[in-house]
Nucleic acid binder design. Structure first.
Length: 417
RNA sequence: GUGGGCGUAGCUCAGUUGGCUAGAGCGCUAGGUUGUGGUCCUAGAGGUCGCGGGUUCGAGCCCCGUCGUCCACCCCA
């Protein structure tokens, strides 16, 4: 018999981790829905063209796209991120602005997997379309910070930068190219190749040999037009007013070509592996127009679920929630009693489970123990004869006989409800 | 895409210079206790040693390939 495993870069999320994922998404939904964001569920695949707008020099597009031809001859790609899909949805439905949406779900990139990097990876995020106001930039960032706070994460560093308007970005890229070309022999081979594709990305190099040339490179701050500089200053002022700590990092470029003006990134200081960036975002004021819509400003962020949970592990916070089974029914009279009691308790809103296959009491008690239930209900011949059940508190071993018609009430009392 | 480490039971791993029927702990099942879990004791089930070739009298061990996985680079969440 052939056997199968998950495809590379994918995995099964089993309990109790799966419950933790759900709790993570629930906390996020609570935070953003209280801030007026509506849920959007875009499709997991779209026409490849939607994602090509992300930028033709980004690696997401050039080598990581999970794409294929479908049976209708369409060129399809599994979404590598959700911002482009949200913008496509905006152009398709033309909702009134400001349009504030949040999402949660898997994305796909064809990469070589390693810790914190998967071919299918989950993100939660928000997008706002139709608002230029720098106060929104600050509010978006503060929203992410609030979410981290709700998880219990403390070791978060927020890096902030402005990439300027599209004209600024081009002028800066040209200045960088000139600078690095004149220092070509000081650059690593890899960075020389990066320079060909996208001079801004050279700033991201972590190679020690590049440090000198990067330190001497022109600064983005000197290439911002007045409007972009004023916007950036307002964002900083609003963040300070909101009490959000940040550090300006004018080497922060980020991987997506569509970013304009404000960009930011959250780094988990508790993580030591390669992937310490657990979330990021920024403005993408030209993206809606690139997708055939009207000129519409946009801003948003995406937070990586897997990596954020790794950070939670490193800090020992946001543990998986406890089991929902509160009562376990042990029935040594065949199992019919367990069926009745189980459905009675469940109908009363009490988490209940039972054993099967008429196993011995000892064996059923073991299962009860493993289930994590606080209470066991034991049904044997004696109890049936007395029209009662034995209620056992697992932690103490204390037992009492409870008449069947008082069962639900007594269980609730024992559970402290 | 590049480089390196590692693939032996459900899990974590031993396995000597290549040499009897491949082991341990945990977990699982059952019993010790025919009405009681978490501790303890006993027994049992469970493995084509990732897969395919090769070398050899003989391969879990050596060689080649392949797949998977982990780590780093690249890049990013």
């Amino acid at each position: 018999m052939p056997t199968f495993n998950t495809s590379p870069g994918t995995r099964d999320i089993l309990a109790p981790e799966s419950a933790r994922w759900r709790a993570f998404q629930q906390v996020f939904a609570d935070v953003v829905e209280h801030a007026g964001f509506a849920h959007i569920i875009p499709p997991m695949f779209e026409d490849l063209g939607v994602f090509l707008r992300v930028g033709e020099t980004t690696e997401i597009v050039t080598k990581e796209m999970y794409d294929f031809d479908d049976k209708g001859g369409r060129r399809i790609a599994l979404r590598p991120e959700q911002t482009a899909s949200v913008c496509r949805a905006f152009v398709e439905h033309r909702p009134v602005t400001p349009w504030k949406v949040w999402y949660s779900g898997p994305n796909f990139r064809y990469e070589k997997p390693q810790q914190g990097r998967y071919r299918q990876f989950d993100q939660v995020g928000v997008e706002v379309l139709g608002v230029d106001d720098p106060q929104l930039d600050a509010e978006i960032i503060a929203l992410a910070v609030e979410f981290y706070r709700r998880l219990g994460l403390r070791g978060i560093r927020l890096s902030l930068n402005s990439l300027g308007d599209s004209g600024d970005r081009e002028r800066y890229a040209a200045a960088l190219r000139t600078h690095f070309v004149s220092h070509l022999d000081a650059l690593s081979v890899e960075s020389r190749a990066t320079l060909e594709r996208n001079p801004l990305r050279v700033l991201d190099s972590k190679r020690p040999e590049d440090a000198g040339a990067i330190a001497a490179a022109p600064r983005m701050a000197d290439h911002l037009c007045d409007a972009a500089a004023a916007h950036f200053a307002s964002v900083q002022a609003a963040l300070q007013a909101a009490g959000v700590d940040f550090v300006i990092d004018d080497r922060l470029v980020r991987g997506l070509d569509y970013y304009r003006r404000t960009t930011f990134e959250f780094v988990a200081t508790s993580l030591t592996a390669a992937h310490t960036a657990i979330g990021g975002g920024g403005r993408y004021d030209g993206l809606v127009a690139d997708l055939g819509g009207p000129e519409t400003p946009g801003i948003g962020f995406a937070l990586g679920l897997d990596r954020t949970l790794l950070a939670c592990d490193a800090e020992g916070v946001f543990a998986a929630p406890a089991t929902v089974v509160e009562v376990f029914i042990v029935d040594v009279t065949g199992g019919a009693q367990a069926a009745t009691v189980c459905s009675q308790l469940r109908a009363a809103g009490i988490g209940a489970d039972r054993a099967y296959d008429a196993r011995s009491m000892k064996s059923q008690m073991k299962v009860a123990d493993r289930s994590g239930a606080r209470l066991a209900l034991i049904v044997g011949e004696d109890e049936v004869a007395k029209n009662a059940v034995t209620l056992r508190t697992m932690e103490t071993g204390a037992q009492q006989l409870v008449p069947r018609d008082e069962l639900v009430a007594q269980v609730k009392t024992a559970l402290g409800r």
